[in-house]
Write a protein that binds this DNA or RNA. Structure first.
Length: 199
DNA sequence: CAGAAGATCTGC
DNA sequence: CAGATCTTCTGC
């Protein structure tokens, strides 16, 4: 298992979002290690993206997204949910990848506990579910995914099986009209049961 | 300073 | 399908 480095994240969010599919997202806490295999991501691209929180420039909330790549941008929404993004691009560039869904791999008992839910297909199928499953919230905003931290992404021998030209690209979820809702910046593993918005 | 919308999820 | 629930931003 190979921890992804700063060079990986220091590219545009579209590339990173695509290449994160099949990678592991890992969080080590006092309770143990939790990990999901990412099966769905979305790219958000700052000033060129009306759907991005950073579209109108830096604010207190979006400060982390304008900083160096390889950090976590965590935001709160709908009065009760936390969602996790990975900051991409160069320093000063507002780009990020929203972690939308994953397949539980490690620490599944802890995920069930945190989520208050038993079905493996509802543990991390959605950005707020994923964040809750791996124990991400306010205090993780700005945390580094780079060497030494307790939070990271990794590639392993299984990762390539999720990519290799079979990744689907669709429009993003949950954006209002005119807010970049027509851009194909969502990446997912087709027919994977752990993605969000299945039907 | 007030109002509205929000990168969502759950239960009815 | 509507309610939960509160932060952030915008406009007045």
């Amino acid at each position: 298992m190979r921890r992804l480095t700063k060079d990986f994240y220091a590219r545009d969010a579209l590339t990173v979002a695509r290449e994160l599919i099949g990678c592991l997202f890992v969080h080590r806490t006092g309770e143990g290690i939790s990990a999901v295999r990412l099966v769905e991501t979305e790219a958000y691209r700052g000033p060129q993206d009306p759907g991005s929180h950073g579209y109108r420039g830096m604010t207190e909330r979006t400060r982390v997204m304008f900083g160096p790549p390889g950090r976590l941008y965590v935001y709160f929404t709908y009065g009760m949910h936390w969602c996790a993004n990975i900051v991409c691009g160069g320093e000063g560039v507002c780009e990020a990848v929203l972690l939308r869904a994953g397949e539980p791999v490690l620490g599944i008992d802890g995920m069930k506990q945190r989520r208050g839910c038993a079905s493996p297909f509802l543990l991390a199928a959605g950005p707020a579910r994923l964040a809750q499953a791996v124990g991400i919230s306010r205090e993780d905003n700005g945390a580094s995914l780079l060497r030494g931290g307790s939070l990271w992404c990794a590639a392993d021998e299984v990762t390539p099986r999720y990519g290799s030209g079979e990744i689907a690209e669709t429009i993003r979820v949950g954006l209002g009209a005119g807010r970049g809702d027509d851009l194909p910046w969502r990446f997912l593993v087709p027919n994977n049961r752990h993605t969000s918005r299945r039907r």
